[in-house]
């Protein structure tokens, strides 16, 4: 069950791709949907939006950054190893429609989530501009795939080691000033999505973001993933994960994502001691 059939290391070892045998999920999954994975008996349930699916092969692909113990456990699984549990597809699929000029903005591993959405938007006839960014050249992922999935393509790095020296929002704003953009899709770290939404609000361009709050069941049962959208409480697992970026309370989300900072550090430190012993 849930065997890893392909594994790639990206971005200098910090980002991992796993293609996982999960035929039931692969058959059903649509762009924008996520799965919950658990590596071991004692592990956490971690939600990750799928980067790709292959219904014929019966596999799904996830791409994640190793940031703590749970993702370190994922990293330690080799080809032929299995996840103990994979649940999905969860969440509402992306609403894909032919609307005209679209800009897809991705940062960090958010690019992995953005890829199937970008591809879908282009396939149905939109004129898609893609802007992806990372702190430096080594951390950039899926450049070729994103290039192929879009009509126009831009790369940014914070340190100027590759492409535009600066933030994705700078390129975004330049295009918004010059062109009649109908939709912006922004997926990446929360501060990036917040910055994207602030800029598009200025130009009154509809903006969609994909949120990844702390979650347990993924079926609307616990309410742990609640986010404030337009002043109302929504559950990211069933009402999302995609929401109107102009309505999301990003500051609340940033705080809620820090709920277990101390525990996460303790967990990670304990695990590092174990594997280094």
């Amino acid at each position: 069950m849930f065997e890893i059939v392909k594994r790639e290391v990206m971005a200098g070892g910090t980002v991992i791709l796993n293609e996982i045998d999960a035929p039931l999920i692969a058959k059903k999954a649509m762009p924008g949907q996520f799965v919950i994975l658990k590596a071991t008996e004692t592990g956490e349930r971690i939600p990750l939006t799928m980067a790709d699916t292959d219904p014929e092969k019966g596999t799904i692909t996830i791409i994640y950054m190793v940031v703590g113990k749970s993702t370190a456990l994922f990293r330690d699984l080799k080809i032929g190893d299995s996840y103990m549990d994979v649940i999905g597809p969860l969440g509402a699929p992306t609403h894909l429609e032919k609307i005209g000029k679209v800009i897809c903005v991705g940062g960090g591993t958010g690019v992995a989530v953005l890829h199937p959405i970008t591809r879908g938007l282009k396939q149905i006839g939109n004129d898609v501009t893609c802007i992806i960014g990372a702190r430096n050249k080594d951390l950039l992922i899926l450049e070729d795939k994103m290039k192929a999935a879009s009509n126009h393509f831009h790369v940014c790095t914070d340190d100027g080691s590759y492409g535009h020296h600066g933030f994705v929002t700078e390129i975004l704003e330049k295009i918004l000033k010059e062109e009649d953009v109908k939709l912006v899709v922004g997926i990446g770290p929360v501060p990036m999505m917040k910055a994207v939404s602030n800029i598009t609000a200025k130009y009154q361009v509809k903006t969609m973001v994909s949120l990844n709050p702390i979650m347990i069941d993924g079926t609307g049962m616990c309410g742990g993933c609640r986010v404030s959208v337009g002043g109302k409480t929504k559950f990211a697992c069933v009402d999302g994960p995609e929401f109107d970026g102009h309505e999301v309370d990003f500051d609340e989300l940033i705080l809620r994502l820090r709920a277990y900072t101390d525990e996460e550090k303790l967990s990670n430190d304990t695990y590092c001691q174990v594997i280094n012993a």
Partner: peptide, 26 residues
């Protein structure tokens, strides 16, 4: 918390045995 979340963390995910089990609870 909703009771569902608090109890699911503690019971199903065994947060009462954190850090032996990985899921924390406040």
């Amino acid at each position: 918390f909703s009771a569902n979340e608090y109890l699911t963390r503690s019971n199903l995910m065994k947060a009462y045995m954190f850090p032996e089990y990985d899921t924390p609870v406040i």
